[in-house]
């Protein structure tokens, strides 16, 4: 059986003449597995998420080496809408991904694009909002919600696509304890349903849902030994966006 998300010898640099942000990254996320990636600010975690989700090289530029396979197909050979049918990514900044004045419209946007039948869209909107504890907010304006609530709505908007692979790029950064618990429950439920989840985190408290924790540092991805005392907090001059 193919691995849902796999990176082979993956490397990236912003331009030909610049040194790579990371290189030689080999990573596989199996069905029913939650993998977390930690790393200091500026180490390239978000850029790695963009490479794994096909945003690089399909939408954003730069020089990507190696390949990313989504269900065995290289992302280079896919179009973003084709990727959206298999992989969902929740971005760090939820604000930029919310553009409708009603939460349920926001959550319905993805399935509508994928031509899902209206009855099924209703079911998905309800289930996705319930999965992150936001079902009572269906009729609210997302722009008037708190940062944490926006993050949960943005997550529900991706869950409604029912992706086999879910990438969460610091998607718990603005959540309170309740929101974090809801998010962790959702991640566990995804794992139980055989989905592959990749979690980029900087908060050690959120790593308890992960089956494996890796660290991206100095351009290399390696197993994290759990030593937070010696954890580098930022990369001098690092800018990985």
């Amino acid at each position: 059986m193919t691995i849902p998300l796999r990176a082979r010898n993956l490397g990236y640099s912003f331009a030909e003449h610049l040194s790579p942000l990371f290189s030689g990254v080999d990573l596989g996320v199996e069905r029913g597995e939650v993998v977390a990636i930690v790393g200091p600010s500026g180490s390239g975690k978000t850029t790695l998420c963009h490479c794994l989700s096909g945003i690089i090289p399909l939408i954003r530029g730069g020089v990507m080496e190696g390949e990313v396979l989504l269900d065995g197909t290289p992302t280079r050979a896919l179009r973003p809408p084709e990727i959206a049918q298999k992989l969902g990514i929740v971005f760090q900044d939820p604000e930029a991904g919310l553009f409708f004045p009603v939460v349920e419209d926001e959550v319905a946007f993805g399935p509508e694009n994928l031509c899902v039948a209206p009855v099924e869209i209703h079911r998905r909107v309800g289930a996705s909002l319930a999965a992150v504890g936001m079902d009572a907010f269906a009729e609210r304006n997302p722009h008037r919600l708190s940062g944490g609530e926006k993050q949960l709505v943005a997550t529900a908007a991706v869950l409604s696509l029912q992706p086999d692979v879910l990438i969460l790029d610091e998607a718990m950064s603005q959540l309170d304890d309740r929101g974090r618990d809801m998010m962790k429950d959702m991640i566990r439920a995804m794992r139980d349903r055989g989905k592959a989840v990749l979690l980029v985190e900087h908060d050690p408290e959120n790593l308890d849902v992960a089956d494996r924790v890796l660290m991206l540092h100095d351009g290399e991805l390696a197993t994290f030994d759990g030593n937070w005392d010696g954890f580098p907090r930022s990369v001098p001059g690092g800018s990985a966006r």
């Binding site: 990727i83 959206a84 990514i89 553009f99 694009n113 899902v116 209206p118």
Partner: peptide
């Protein structure tokens, strides 16, 4: 915003459904 739109299947098909 354009990233978010693209990664949620915008223009996946010539037509789309509506809830």
């Amino acid at each position: 915003m354009s990233l978010s739109v693209e990664m949620r299947g915008f223009r996946a098909y010539p037509r789309r459904t509506s809830h």
